[in-house]
Design a protein around this nucleic acid. Structure first.
Lengths: 226, 226
DNA sequence: TCCATGGTTCGATGCTAGTCGAAGCATACT
DNA sequence: AGTATGCTTCGACTAGCATCGAACCATGGA
């Protein structure tokens, strides 16, 4: 025997519920921190760390250190394809999956990505920023564009104080629901903070969803999607 | 949480070495008895029986009682595709086996994947089918292309009868040795059947290898790789 | 330099699941 | 019937591993 690749080794990696939850949470192609994954898996941080180490050892994940955060992501499309294949079998085997639930739709629309806004709204906003040179791409990095300071002053965000810190003001972050970039960095955080502070949206506990109120959405669109 | 199908459940089924060995032993699409599988897995008969019960419970296997023998087989192509997908990641993750050995070489070249041909030959054939529009990709699914029916008629495969069944005629299956797709589905089965019927290749017992004879390979290449 | 926060490592604990011998069924051959 | 063979069930044993609290390390911000 002992022919072919060691399939049991990596199948057993997926075979643990906590790890399986982590992997499915990453199936969107995004990257999550260890804490977020721990929450997602419903397990303590040490446990999650141990699992992540195992998944790394099995080359199922990649990690990118950004500051004191470590962003974990699937190692590649092959891994995603494998998860899909397993899901396919599981769907036939297990109890028929119930309803898709309204939660998925809300997640696609607007959610929190650690400390900034992600989802369709965030991508649309970012597109508009770039189109009007509020933000400009400079090679790989992002900078505030010529129209930037006045625009943010107009919506009540002071950008002069954001540039001092060591943390980058603008950063691009890849979105999974839409396959495009959205805005991270301290400016992204400031925008999310404003959305919450103005009570345009709420964040249901224990979820990444950002739930806009009808008037809040209008206000947001008027200011940021113009 | 608890969203989506229970992937951990069935991944953990594959995650045990004994069960993984059984499943790979069945990857040639054949059916084996409990004793044979116990031998294949290197485990005692009671243990094997317990494993088989679990695999049955997870709907990964089917069983057919014939006399006092019970023949176990994979439950379907989906299960086979899943095993292939897992093999794919495992091949890249696991410790690269130092010297591939002659058997691996044959496996890479041509092998049976449940009920159709896989390996380099199969991938080359599939590429040619796509290039000449014998088969066309339609989003995620595959269809017979404009040049399809006449081509297969020319090589002695009647495609008109294959579309009726519930089973899809063309399906893509990811190859683990080469990182590309090859042809599954009833058409894939028909091609493998023809290769065996024409005696272009033999299948050594107890292995997934497909061993082409020198003239058989020539004939195959002339017809399918043109 | 000092604190706060995100992550990993260590150690101890508890539970699950794989393992096999022996016994129990079921089917077939004589 | 009687016996042999293929397979499953039962019971007991064991090992591995997931889990968490607490301590430890690293980075960022003041």
């Amino acid at each position: 025997m002992k022919e072919g690749p060691d399939i049991a080794r990596i199948a057993s990696l997926v075979g643990d519920p906590a790890r399986a939850n982590m992997l499915t949470a990453l199936m969107d192609g995004g990257a999550l921190t260890a804490s977020e994954l721990a929450l997602e898996a419903g397990v303590s941080l040490p446990t999650a760390s141990s699992h992540l180490a195992k998944l790394m050892d099995g080359k199922l994940l990649t990690v990118a250190s950004q500051g004191r955060h470590r962003y974990y992501a699937l190692a590649g499309t092959e891994v995603a394809a494998m998860i899909e294949a397993i899901s396919g079998v599981a769907a036939h085997s297990g109890p028929q999956r119930a309803r898709p639930g309204p939660r998925d739709k809300s997640m696609r629309e607007a959610r929190v990505c650690y400390d900034h806004l992600a989802g369709e709204h965030a991508v649309a906003m970012f597109d508009r920023f770039v189109a009007e040179e509020i933000i400009v791409r400079d090679d790989e990095t992002l900078r505030l564009g010529p129209a930037g300071p006045s625009f943010f002053a107009g919506v009540g965000i002071d950008t002069s104080g954001l540039g001092n810190s060591r943390r980058p003001m603008c950063r691009a972050c890849l979105d999974w629901s839409v396959r495009r970039a959205h805005l991270a960095g301290s400016l992204g955080t400031a925008i999310l903070d404003k959305i919450i502070a103005e009570k345009w949206a709420r964040r249901p506990a224990g979820s990444r969803v950002v739930e806009f109120t009808p008037p809040g959405r209008k206000a947001f669109e008027k200011l940021f999607l113009a």
